[in-house]
Design a protein around this nucleic acid. Structure first.
Length: 444
RNA sequence: GUGGAUGUAGCUCAAUGGCAGAGCACCUGAUUGUGGUUCAGGCGGUUGAGGGUUCAAGUCCCUUCAUCCACCCCA
């Protein structure tokens, strides 16, 4: 029989135990902070009806949506979720009578995109979303920024910035500069590359798209408006005070700034940056994304307001804003910089209980069960070959199990046990009834 | 979708067109109540796949597949 090559599909990954322990550490912090801010868990299916997913993300993104069908189906009527935001909109519309507004939910789950994988980018990846449905004012948007800052700080990052902009402001700038309405999308796409290409690169690309030189110049000057805190907002308002949509945008950002202050968000962790665009089509108001100051990877979180999305599933829309943490990128960086506590990774086992010989298996099993009942994560040694203590120690050492409990005839007879801490080689003998307490002490 | 790089043992990699190798890992023993070190031995291959050139191909040529990196886009 020919063997099937063991491999994962393109862009898909397995997480072995050592990786999973790190992921669970990161996800645990994210979830803890989400709950600290009062967000509730939600789970939705991986498969949604195609109708639910299509037409929400823009043409380019739509090409990356996986469809799914079973063997007896000719056409695919369902597709794999592309993010967690559209499913949320669906849920809100579907269960509105069971939900109390404002609805604050979080969801940590895999999503699927048929992109070409590269560093920190995969076809299946986890998103960690927190969203607020039913609040139109900026206290919601500011809370999300505060939430992101708290998560990222707790994970051990200190040099990072949440860049904040407003879709309405971009539209206003386009109108002021004289960009035709039908070219606004092109404009956004080019401006989005500001980080990589700089002002000159963006200018060149806009020119290529057929936008006039003087328009480009006005636009780029506005985009690059800089200033401490809300100063940049003042400067932009001076120029665009006559454009209602720009004024609306600026007022929203001012309101956000006030709220961020009330929430004590460290000022070095956020700034207004008018070059932030964000790709997804559904954003309508403030938008934000988080970048590490050393620029080592793309954004590690993104979000913004999408007041119209729920309206696709329901007669009246609901004001909604949300944020998504890019946990895969965060983990990529944390792996590279080894930002995990020392006790993360390796194994979950606290103690290995040895088995001296076949006759002694009962005594060892009883000890292991006793430890488990006391809350100690105990592994009972198992093998198909000859039982040898040396091999059992070797096994514990290789797996990174910190403590070995030696249980032999002498110990069984006297109801004692020998505990050995592998890191120090230190060994003590004590009553079996005291073992759990002692192990707990040795683990600290 | 576009461009570049790379595919040899489980992993990391060698091998002028001339016998497919090393290190690590794994298993066994030295060592029948104690791990990391050491020593001895063992397991392990359709050189990604298919075709071509040649007395001879891991090596050269063609095709194809896969992976990685970058672009596009995005978390």
């Amino acid at each position: 029989m020919t063997k099937i090559e063991a491999r994962t599909a393109k862009g898909m990954r397995d997480f072995l135990p050592a990786d999973m322990l790190k992921r669970e550490y990161v996800i645990g912090i994210v979830e803890e902070v989400f709950q600290l801010y009062g967000y509730e868990p939600l789970q939705t299916p991986i498969l949604e009806t195609s109708e639910t997913l299509l037409g929400k993300y823009g043409e380019e993104a739509e090409n990356l949506i996986y469809s799914a069908k079973h063997g007896r189906q000719r056409d695919s009527k369902v597709a794999m979720r592309y993010d967690l935001t559209v499913p949320l909109a669906r849920v809100v519309a579907q269960y509105e009578n069971q939900l109390t507004l404002p609805f604050k939910r979080y969801q940590i789950a895999p999503v699927f995109r048929g992109e070409n994988p590269q560093r920190g980018r995969f076809r299946e990846f986890y998103q960690c979303d927190a969203d607020i449905v039913g609040v139109a004012n900026m206290s919601a948007d500011a809370e999300l920024v505060s939430l992101v800052v708290t998560v990222v700080r707790r994970l051990g990052f200190d040099k990072f910035t949440v860049k904040i902009n407003n879709r309405k402001l971009l539209t206003g700038m386009g109108q002021y500069s004289g960009v035709p309405d039908d070219q606004l999308a092109d404009l956004y796409r080019s401006v989005d590359k500001f980080d990589k290409m700089g002002a000159k690169g963006v200018a060149a690309e806009l020119k290529e798209r057929g936008i006039a030189d003087d328009v480009i110049e006005r636009m780029l000057t506005l985009l690059q408006t800089k200033g401490e805190g809300i100063e940049s907002l003042d400067s932009v308002e001076e120029v665009m005070g006559n454009f209602p949509i720009a004024v609306e945008a600026i007022n929203e950002l001012r309101e956000m700034a006030e709220n961020l202050k009330m929430l004590n968000v460290p000022s070095e962790n956020y700034q207004f940056d008018f070059t932030v665009v964000r790709g997804l089509g559904y954003y309508t108001g403030p938008i934000f994304e988080t970048v590490l100051d050393d620029g080592s990877i793309g954004s590690i979180s993104g979000g913004g307001r999408y007041d119209d999305l729920i309206g696709i599933f329901r007669k009246n829309s609901l004001p909604t804003t949300g944020v998504s943490l890019g946990i895969e990128r965060i983990i990529t960086i944390m792996d590279e910089k080894n930002m995990y506590p020392a006790n993360i990774g390796g194994t979950v086992v606290d103690v290995l209980v040895t088995v001296f010989n076949k006759e002694m298996q009962g005594a060892s099993s009883a000890l292991a069960q006793g430890l488990r009942n006391a809350g100690i994560r105990a592994e009972l040694y198992m093998t198909d070959s000859r039982l040898k203590l040396g091999k059992q120690f070797n096994y514990a050492d290789k797996k990174g199990i910190p403590i070995v409990a030696v249980m032999g005839p002498d110990e069984a007879e006297k109801s004692i046990v020998r505990l050995k801490q592998l890191s120090t080689g230190e060994e003590i003998t004590l009553a079996q009834s005291d073992a759990a307490a002692k192990i707990r002490e040795m683990l600290n």
